[in-house]
C-alpha cells in the first residue's frame, strides 16, 4: 500500500539552517546537508528546504546547497522560497531537486503553475498555500500569514489542481507554531475536494497530532519542523506509533 509520508522541513538562510536545531550529535547545527542526512537515516520519507534568505546571492547559494543535498541523500526533496519563474525551477531541477514549492508567485501569477506543469510535469510542482480563518472563512495569506488575499482556500486549491499542481502543501496559519495539532477539519475538506495529495503543515506538537492528521484530516503526508529539530519527537518513534494506529508507513 502507498504509505503516509513524514516530512521534516528545514528553513534555510544563506545556505545555513536557521531557527534553533537541537541535535546533540551534530558537529555543525547549521549545516543543512548534515541535518538532511540525519533525517534521511532516521526514516524521513522526504525533505523540504525552505529558503528564506533575501540577498542577491541567494540563487547561487541555494543551487550549491541543492547539489550538495542531492549528492548526499537518497530520498526525494523539495525546494521552496522565492521561486518565481520557469528558469528558477529549471536550475533547481537540473542540480538535483526533485520538486519545487511555489507560494506567493503562484498567487500573483497563476499561469506559472500551468507553465511549470507543462514543462517539467505535475509531479514536481508543489503549490504551498498558507491560510487562516477570517470570520469563519479560510482565506489564503501571503508573506507567512501577514498579508491576506481575496482568495478562499478551497477555491484556490481547486484552481491550482486544475492548473496542473501535483501536490498541495497546506499550512494553517491559525495552527502554525501553536503545537496544538493540525487543522484537521480544513484538511479533510481539502482532501475530499481535490484529487491530488495534500501535505498537512502547521501545529504539530505531539504524536497524536500526526495520527489525527491522517485519520481525521485524511492528509497524505504531514510536515513539521521544530518537533523534529528539537528532538521532541523522533521520526522512528513517530512511525512506530503511526503503524500501531494502523496507518501505513515505511519503516
Amino acid at each position: 500500500m502507498l504509505t503516509k509520508r513524514i516530512i521534516p522541513c528545514l528553513d534555510i538562510k544563506n545556505g545555513r539552517t536557521v531557527k534553533g536545531v537541537n541535535f546533540v550529535d551534530l558537529r555543525d547545527a547549521g549545516d543543512p546537508v548534515e541535518l538532511a542526512k540525519i533525517y534521511s537515516d532516521e526514516g524521513a520519507d522526504e525533505l523540504v528546504f525552505l529558503d528564506i534568505s533575501a540577498t542577491e546571492e541567494r540563487r547561487k547559494t541555494l543551487v550549491e546547497l541543492v547539489r550538495k543535498v542531492a549528492s548526499t541523500i537518497n530520498i526525494p526533496f523539495t525546494v521552496g522560497g522565492g521561486i518565481s519563474s520557469v528558469l528558477d525551477v529549471e536550475i533547481l531541477l537540473q542540480n538535483g531537486a526533485d520538486k519545487v514549492s511555489i507560494n506567493s508567485s503562484a498567487v500573483k501569477n497563476p499561469q506559472l503553475i500551468n507553465d511549470l506543469a507543462q514543462k517539467f510535469g505535475s509531479q514536481c510542482v508543489v503549490v504551498a498555500i498558507d491560510a487562516k480563518q477570517i470570520d469563519g472563512e479560510w482565506i489564503v495569506h501571503l508573506m507567512g500569514g501577514k498579508i491576506p488575499t481575496e482568495l478562499n482556500l478551497f477555491d484556490w486549491a481547486k484552481e491550482v489542481e486544475q492548473r496542473g499542481a501535483g501536490e498541495i502543501l497546506f499550512t494553517s496559519m491559525d495552527n502554525d507554531g501553536t503545537k496544538n495539532g493540525f487543522a484537521n477539519e480544513a484538511l479533510a475538506k481539502l482532501s475530499k475536494l481535490v484529487n491530488i495529495p495534500i501535505i498537512a503543515s502547521g501545529g504539530a506538537g505531539n504524536i497524536q497530532h500526526f495520527v489525527d492528521s491522517f485519520l481525521v484530516g485524511k492528509a497524505d503526508a504531514a510536515l513539521a519542523a521544530s518537533v523534529f529539530h528539537f528532538k521532541e519527537i523522533k521520526i522512528k518513534t513517530l512511525k512506530t506509533a503511526l503503524k500501531s494506529n494502523n496507518i501505513e508507513v515505511r519503516i
Binding site: T3, K4, Q123, E167, I196, P197, D220
Partner: peptide, 13 residues
C-alpha cells in the same frame, strides 16, 4: 482513474 489520488506520490511496496 480518479478513484485514487493522481499522481500516486510516495513510497509503495
Amino acid at each position: 482513474t480518479p478513484k485514487v489520488k493522481v499522481p500516486q506520490m510516495g513510497w509503495n511496496q
